[in-house]
Design a protein around this nucleic acid. Structure first.
Lengths: 204, 204
DNA sequence: TAGAAAAATTTACACTGGCAACATGAGGAG
DNA sequence: CTCCTCATGTTGCCAGTGTAAATTTTTCTA
């Protein structure tokens, strides 16, 4: 192990350090006030150093968003493990989805930010897919209500998208601070309160 | 009618002109590339002129967002008028909600942007409420599925929030370009396809 | 060990939004 | 009609942003 306290010209693992510092600063100051120069300064490096590894600010943000999706997926998987298929698993996955958004609102917004949506990196697309896959697996065990039983079940992609729509809409409104609140300021709507608990959907 | 082509020191109706120009530019270049200076330049005025009317860029954006909510509400009302209560009205309102987001994605994002969420202007809060009120009135005529009929109906605020959650989640995912697409690139999921048409909810 | 490639720095540039000091002119009071 | 006030715009400036080009430093490889 080389001397660690002495400042070296080459950082050694600047790429990873920038991602970490970027994620930290993102949580501290929010997406709008996040600057490339501030991230570089936190790592103790000149403000143009990130260009070698990420090309531009957008490249760095894109990588950060990919890391966000991986953590997002992990947060959902963590709760899902050990649960039985059906409502319990649905509850765990949606809770993980919303919990992540609540605890990391800036990162969550970055992940779905239009700045990165268009020209996705392969890494970002892959990370996003891994997150979607968790919802996909959960949705497979569901049967949405069919008032007229003659109507066919939803197709699997409809199952997934409907689940995603609801949980994503809820998480979005939540972190935007919209919607009714209790007297103490906490959000009044808990999605668990109106979805699985209400038998809104049934497991097959 | 005073001379119109001659440049006057005092604009006359700068406030309204800035809002109009801001909304135009927003659609043209998107929220991230929208600059105060560009808006002022379009009106033919110095970049500090807006300060007299809006205080700061955030003030102008806030006013633009309020105008967005009013148009958003109008878009929903337009479709709702003349419909019978229940599913038809629900369909019209949600279609209006999504159509607005699809046709004005940048404005829609601005309206729900975290930059403005915190310290809302009275005008912004009021405009947002007028938009929410439309969903509120539509949701009043709904009965969400209750697999076990012994379970109580949703309370009115739950009705509204659940509807909002779904339609907002769908609109958000749509304009973010997420979700499955057809071969021609158009979005595969049409909310009308899986909600009212599927008898997902029933009118009372 | 030399020379090429990678990694960071320095410097410069075109932008941005906000501030302070000043210029203009519209409209009311006498 | 005149003066004078004050809202409305302008000019010049500042700190801060991301990006690009040229340069220095280090590491790696042949």
């Amino acid at each position: 192990m080389l001397k660690e306290n002495k400042k070296r010209y080459h950082h050694g693992d600047l790429k990873a350090a920038l991602i970490t510092a970027g994620l930290e600063l993102l949580e501290e100051v929010g997406l709008d006030d996040l600057s490339l120069r501030a991230i570089a300064a936190r790592v103790g490096v000149s403000h143009t150093a990130p260009k070698n590894h990420f090309g531009s600010l957008k490249g760095l943000l894109s990588t950060m968003a990919a890391e966000g999706f991986r953590r997002h997926a992990a947060e959902m998987k963590k709760g899902v493990e050990g649960t039985s298929p059906g409502k319990e698993r649905l509850r765990a996955a949606t809770a993980g989805y919303v919990r992540f958004a609540r605890e990391h609102p800036s990162l969550f917004r970055l992940m779905f930010s239009p700045v990165l949506a268009r020209d996705e990196t392969d890494e970002l697309a892959e990370a996003g897919a891994s997150s979607y896959a968790v919802l996909q697996s959960v949705a497979a065990g569901l049967d949405w209500p069919r008032p007229k039983l003659t109507q066919p079940e939803l197709q699997s992609w409809q199952n997934e998208m409907l689940l995603w729509t609801i949980v994503h809409g809820y998480a979005s409104l939540l972190i935007e601070g919209r919607g009714p609140k209790k007297d103490d300021g906490t959000p009044l709507l808990d999605i668990l309160e109106i979805m699985p608990d209400f038998d809104f959907v049934q497991s097959k």
